[in-house]
């Protein structure tokens, strides 16, 4: 179980780092939000569940899973709210062929 937890945490850290790199590498707001909304959600989910596995069957791991569920619900909602703000402000997206 300890090893499973460590593997999950490793994967989570990998996705968190990828999200950060995508955040600075992608060309416009909307694509950046893809990196931010997805990679970060899965990354923190994996870190939380990995730590829950590592802790074993105690109350703390149940709490960790509740935090994970909370993030699973709220993170896409926040991403959607930000995306809608960007769209309502008519910020144009980058399309293929334009200069970055």
């Amino acid at each position: 179980m300890t090893v499973v937890g460590m593997v999950l945490v490793c994967g989570g850290v990998f996705f968190l780092v990828t999200g950060a790199v995508g955040l600075i590498r992608f060309p416009d707001i909307y694509t950046r939000m893809h990196a931010a909304g997805k990679c970060d959600t899965l990354g923190s989910l994996l870190v939380l569940t990995g730590l829950a596995c590592h802790e074993g069957l105690v109350l703390a791991s149940a709490k960790l899973l509740i935090v994970a569920l909370f993030i699973l619900i709220t993170s896409p909602t926040a991403t959607h709210a930000i995306a809608r703000a960007a769209r309502r402000n008519r910020i144009e997206g980058w399309t293929r062929g334009e200069d970055r």
Partner: peptide, 23 residues
């Protein structure tokens, strides 16, 4: 599905030239 999506984003982070944003 979320896992697959993340692998796709990871791929795009490595190859930003494959981006083709559309609405």
């Amino acid at each position: 599905e979320i896992f697959l999506a993340n692998l796709h984003v990871v791929y795009l982070v490595c190859r930003p030239d494959r981006l083709r944003p559309q609405i």
